[in-house]
Computed example of a mutant assay.
Amino acid sequence: MGGILSGIRVAMLGGDAREVLLLEELLRQGAEVRTAGLGDLPEQEGCTCCDDPLDAVQEAGVIILPVPGIKAEGIIHAPRARQPLHFTRELAGAIPAGTPVLVGVARPYLKEMAAERGWQLVETAEMDEMAILNSIPTAEGAIMLAMQELPITLHGSEAFILGLGRIGFTLARMLAGIGARITIIDRGASDRARAYAEGWPAFTFTELAAVIERADVIFNTVPAPVLTGELLARTRPDVLIIDLASDPGGTDFTAAAALKRRAMLAPGLPGKVAPRTAGRILARIYPALILKCLGRL
Rank of each mutant, 00 (worst) to 15 (best):
Met1Gly: 13
Leu5Met: 06
Ser6Met: 11
Gly7Leu: 05
Ile8Phe: 06
Ile8Met: 06
Ala11His: 09
Leu13Gly: 00
Asp16Ala: 00
Glu19Lys: 04
Val20Met: 05
Val20Gly: 01
Leu21Glu: 08
Leu22Cys: 02
Leu22Ser: 07
Leu23Ser: 10
Glu25Leu: 01
Leu26Pro: 08
Leu26Gln: 13
Leu27Phe: 03
Glu32Ile: 10
Gln44Arg: 15
Glu45Trp: 06
Glu45Thr: 12
Thr48Ala: 13
Thr48Glu: 15
Cys49Pro: 01
Asp52Phe: 09
Asp52Tyr: 09
Asp55Tyr: 00
Val57Gln: 11
Glu59Arg: 06
Val62Leu: 11
Ile64Lys: 00
Leu65Cys: 09
Pro66Ser: 07
Pro68His: 06
Lys71Glu: 13
Glu73Met: 04
Ile75Trp: 05
Pro79Gly: 07
Arg80Gln: 10
Arg82Pro: 03
Pro84Arg: 10
Leu85Trp: 05
Leu85Gln: 06
Thr88Lys: 03
Thr88Ser: 15
Ala92Pro: 07
Ala92Phe: 09
Gly93Asp: 15
Thr99His: 05
Thr99Lys: 01
Pro100Met: 08
Leu102Met: 12
Val103Pro: 06
Val105Met: 13
Arg107Ala: 02
Arg107Gly: 04
Arg107Tyr: 13
Pro108Met: 05
Leu110Thr: 06
Lys111Met: 14
Met113Leu: 15
Ala114Tyr: 12
Glu123Cys: 10
Thr124Asp: 05
Thr124Tyr: 01
Thr124His: 01
Ala125Phe: 10
Met127Lys: 15
Met127Ser: 00
Met127Gly: 12
Asp128Ala: 12
Met130Ala: 07
Ile132Asp: 07
Ile132Ala: 13
Ile136Asp: 05
Ile136Ser: 03
Pro137Gln: 10
Ala142Met: 04
Met147Leu: 13
Met147Val: 13
Leu150Ser: 14
Pro151Cys: 10
Ile152Asp: 01
Ile161Met: 03
Leu162Asp: 03
Leu162Met: 10
Gly163Ser: 03
Leu164Lys: 04
Leu171Thr: 07
Ala172His: 09
Arg173Asn: 12
Met174Tyr: 12
Leu175Met: 11
Ala176Cys: 03
Ala176Ser: 14
Ile178Leu: 15
Ile178Met: 15
Thr183Arg: 14
Thr183Met: 07
Ile184Arg: 09
Ile184Met: 12
Asp186Phe: 10
Ala189Val: 14
Ala189Lys: 11
Ser190Thr: 13
Asp191Arg: 15
Arg192Ser: 03
Arg192Pro: 00
Ala193Asp: 11
Arg194Phe: 08
Tyr196Ile: 02
Gly199Pro: 09
Pro201Phe: 08
Pro201Asp: 04
Phe203Tyr: 15
Leu208Pro: 06
Val211Ile: 15
Ala215Leu: 02
Asp216Gly: 12
Val217Pro: 07
Phe219Pro: 11
Val226Tyr: 00
Val226Ile: 15
Leu227Lys: 08
Leu227Ser: 09
Thr228Asn: 07
Leu232Trp: 03
Leu232Ile: 14
Arg234Ala: 14
Leu240Gln: 10
Ile241Met: 06
Pro248Tyr: 06
Pro248Arg: 08
Pro248Trp: 03
Gly250Met: 08
Ala255Pro: 03
Leu259Gln: 13
Leu265Cys: 09
Pro267Asn: 08
Pro270Lys: 04
Pro270Cys: 05
Lys272Asn: 00
Lys272Trp: 02
Val273Asp: 05
Pro275Met: 02
Pro275Gln: 03
Thr277His: 06
Arg280Cys: 12
Leu282Met: 12
Ile290Pro: 09
Cys293Ala: 15
Cys293Tyr: 01
Cys293Gln: 15
Cys293Lys: 11
Leu297Ser: 14
